[in-house]
Amino acid sequence: MTAPHHSERMPVVEIDRAALAANWALLAARNPGARTGAAVKADGYGLGAAETARTLHAAGCRDFFVAWAEEGRIVRAALDALTHPDDGTAPARIFVLQGLEPDSVSLHLDAGLIPVLSTPGDIAVWCNGLKAAGRRAPAAIQLETGMHRLGLDRADAEAAADLAASGELDLALVMSHLASADEPTDQSARQQARFLELAALFPGVPRSLANSAAVFLGSEFGFDLTRPGIALYGGEAGPASRGVLRPVARLTAAILQIRTANAGEAAGYGAAAPLTRDTRIATVGLGYADGYHRAASGAGVAVRDVRPGPQAVVAGQRVPVLGRVSMDLTLLDVTDVPDNALVPGDRAEFFGPNMSIDAVANAAGTIAYELLTGLGPRVERRWV
């Protein structure tokens, strides 16, 4: 089958396989007494779940977390398709975080997925589904410890513990999620104490609490399994992670045209960028339809009224985004780049090794997670 054509001028996100593996290894070394998993939900944080899972599996990861069973099926197929022999450790486990409905029990069983049960309804669906199928299979329990998102409270956890003690519920993991691990508050300590209290209802069952930021909080948060996400992909996860993670994704797009506009004119939609000098403008083939947010505009949107907009890198030099980001195009002010250093067809880096994704996200009033998971289907994923 012929591969779909992708114009060389279209946006590309280059994904550094070695950096992804190195970040996982660094995070694993922070808690050597625990297994280190990986969140590969949202299509591997926008980079491609199948290739992300294969890369992390080769690095040694054996525990993967997705949001939906359909995502888990993709990851399972990717791991089953590996041609190199396993290293003798247990097969990969794939946890599905957002509960389940009756129709998905068979999918979990067929693909070897482990549902994370967060409500009494989840538990009933799983137990009834197993009875109907005449099967036994492991599940995980999520506990509510203070985030008030998903999880069992004390009474429901006690009921689940009774089912586990009777053998009706086979548990592979008890877990919870920290709300503020990347912020200097005491909420994480309170949640950890609550987690210890509730997890004690499930003696002998492995425990998991740490997300990316909590990996850097200390071994008391590591328990038996950590579940990093954004840190794997090079995004910051609290102050302790700064400067130690390798950038994984590099978003570039081609310059389509370079022109000079006169002082006193304005650039882009809404004439949002009045020009105070004669300005060389590079028009780049990247816009909010590709996931480069309109909030990343240089001017003309609400968040840009109060702070400078993001920059990009061309010819080794940082340049500002000019005016409003549009659906397919972004303007860059390249006046200060030497004339002979830049021609149409050259590529601008919007985040990557030369332009921190967290700096771009902060300037756009968002977070690195959103920039990665929002990358559109027109952006080619290119593993390097």
Rank of each mutant, 00 (worst) to 15 (best):
residue 188 S to A: 15
residue 370 E to H: 15
residue 107 L to K: 02
residue 108 H to G: 07
residue 228 P to K: 03
residue 168 E to Y: 00
residue 310 P to Y: 02
residue 104 S to M: 06
residue 283 T to D: 13
residue 320 P to Q: 03
residue 125 V to T: 12
residue 294 R to H: 10
residue 355 M to R: 15
residue 183 E to L: 08
residue 211 N to P: 01
residue 159 A to E: 13
residue 54 R to I: 01
residue 329 L to F: 07
residue 291 G to A: 10
residue 183 E to R: 09
residue 93 R to E: 14
residue 379 V to A: 09
residue 55 T to K: 04
residue 190 R to C: 07
residue 40 V to M: 04
residue 113 L to C: 06
residue 245 L to G: 10
residue 89 T to K: 06
residue 322 L to A: 07
residue 288 Y to D: 15
residue 123 I to S: 01
residue 165 A to Y: 02
residue 104 S to N: 03
residue 267 A to L: 06
residue 173 L to T: 08
residue 98 Q to H: 08
residue 350 F to T: 12
residue 129 G to F: 00
residue 337 V to Y: 06
residue 286 L to G: 12
residue 278 D to Q: 08
residue 48 G to H: 01
residue 8 E to K: 11
residue 204 G to Q: 11
residue 4 P to W: 04
residue 174 V to A: 04
residue 77 A to D: 13
residue 177 H to Y: 04
residue 253 A to R: 04
residue 139 A to K: 05
residue 342 L to W: 02
residue 238 G to R: 09
residue 353 P to Q: 10
residue 131 K to T: 05
residue 126 W to H: 01
residue 136 R to H: 10
residue 15 I to E: 10
residue 309 G to F: 01
residue 81 A to R: 01
residue 121 G to Y: 00
residue 51 E to D: 11
residue 301 V to M: 09
residue 257 Q to E: 15
residue 68 W to D: 05
residue 128 N to P: 00
residue 230 I to N: 06
residue 384 V to L: 09
residue 121 G to S: 00
residue 221 F to V: 09
residue 196 L to K: 12
residue 252 T to S: 13
residue 290 D to P: 12
